[in-house]
């Protein structure tokens, strides 16, 4: 049981992960085919898949800002 994790899950579901503290917003995720369909134009990321990975890593409790795999 993780209280911090629960906060992350709820923030994720409520769309509070982005904008700030994250500068991008994912518009649509096609779960069936497992890839991003569209990415918000405000995204600072050109690569939508990277953005999705970042948000999901956030969900998993990793820090953002590109250090997720460290």
């Amino acid at each position: 049981m993780s209280k911090d994790g629960a906060i992350r899950v709820l923030r994720y579901l409520l769309g509070q992960v982005s904008p700030p503290p994250f500068e991008y917003r994912l518009c649509s995720w096609n779960a069936t085919v497992g890839r991003v369909a569209t990415v918000d134009l405000e995204s600072k990321y050109a690569d939508g898949a990277t953005a999705v990975g970042e948000v999901l890593r956030y969900l998993l409790g990793h820090e953002m800002s590109g250090t997720a795999s460290e």
Partner: peptide, 17 residues
């Protein structure tokens, strides 16, 4: 690096509660 599934499941479970 592999996702921490135990932590992740604990997050979902806590949010559910």
């Amino acid at each position: 690096t592999r996702p921490n599934f135990v932590e992740f499941l604990g997050s979902l479970h806590a949010a559910e509660h």
